[in-house]
């Protein structure tokens, strides 16, 4: 299956035959994946399959055991920590559990990357922070500490922090998990808007299929350390692969239900 406009578009992120294991546990097993510029690529797959691990390879938080990773045709998996910095500055990362700094309030969390970057006055920073918090529906919560927020609120603040620098690529690790359906849809709209208005390239990890179908230009399914299916939302819906169908319809197979028979 080919992505709709693959030919008109060059990959911005490219995984070539990437392997990663933690001790005896093989997580990525020869994974090959292209992420195209100005598109949203959605990665689906069961919990624990290695979706977060995949995202962390893009920003160099994890390094592959074998294989190559490219960003704009530059090989990045071999870069040192310092050499990675300019690439990390172009990529926003929304962590699965937010990863807000507990010692700082909401305002300082969102301001953190802006202050790190330097070159902006405190009043410019204030305007950006207010704007980004408003975008995720967290305005007025500037002085709260992360410990006082719900999981969904924390995630929205973390999203505001990830988009604070106007990165060209945003990696979203389960952006809608833990949000109510309305909030989740606001986040979906935000992902679409960032792509359409600011040409942000997105990689979204999720198992929320409604969200996946709504935001995706390309959906890939990760299974057993490899991409087992790839295509547009429609192509995936009609994909004959049983694993894909069961996942997108949320059907457990008899093997997975066997344990229930003991009750």
């Amino acid at each position: 299956m080919a992505s709709p406009d693959e030919k008109s578009n060059s990959p911005i992120i490219r995984f070539e035959d990437v392997h990663k294991r933690f001790g005896p546990l093989v997580v990525l097993d020869g994974l090959t994946l292209d992420v195209f510029a100005d598109q949203t690529t959605v990665v689906i797959g069961p919990s624990g399959v290695g979706k977060s691990v995949l995202l962390k390879h893009i920003v160099g938080l994890l390094r592959p055991d074998a294989g190559r990773i490219y960003f704009h045709d530059q090989r990045i998996d071999t870069l040192g920590e310092r050499a990675f910095e300019p690439i990390r500055k172009r990529i926003g990362f929304l962590f699965q559990l937010g990863a807000l700094f507990d010692s700082m309030n909401v305002y300082d969390n969102v301001a953190f990357p802006l202050r790190r970057q330097g070159g902006k006055s405190e009043s410019q920073i204030r305007d950006i922070v207010h704007e980004k918090l408003a975008v995720v529906g967290m305005e007025g919560g500037e002085n709260k500490m992360p410990a006082d927020l719900s999981g969904g609120q924390r995630k929205r603040v973390a999203l505001a922090r990830a988009i604070a620098m106007n990165p060209e690529v945003i990696l979203y690790d389960e952006p809608t998990t833990g949000l109510d359906p309305i909030r989740a849809d606001v986040i979906n709209e935000l992902i679409l808007k960032l792509k359409e208005e600011l040409n942000v390239t997105g990689v979204v990890v999720t198992h929320d299929m409604a969200s996946a179908f709504k935001v995706a230009d390309q959906i890939v399914m990760l299974f057993n350390g490899q991409i087992v299916a790839r295509g547009s939302a429609d192509q995936l819906r009609s994909c004959p692969d049983e694993r894909v169908q069961r996942f997108i319809q949320g059907r457990a197979d008899s093997e997975e239900l066997k344990a229930l028979n003991r009750i």
Partner: peptide, 8 residues
């Protein structure tokens, strides 16, 4: 990890 992604 978040610090590292923000180049700190």
């Amino acid at each position: 990890d978040a610090l590292r992604t923000m180049a700190a």
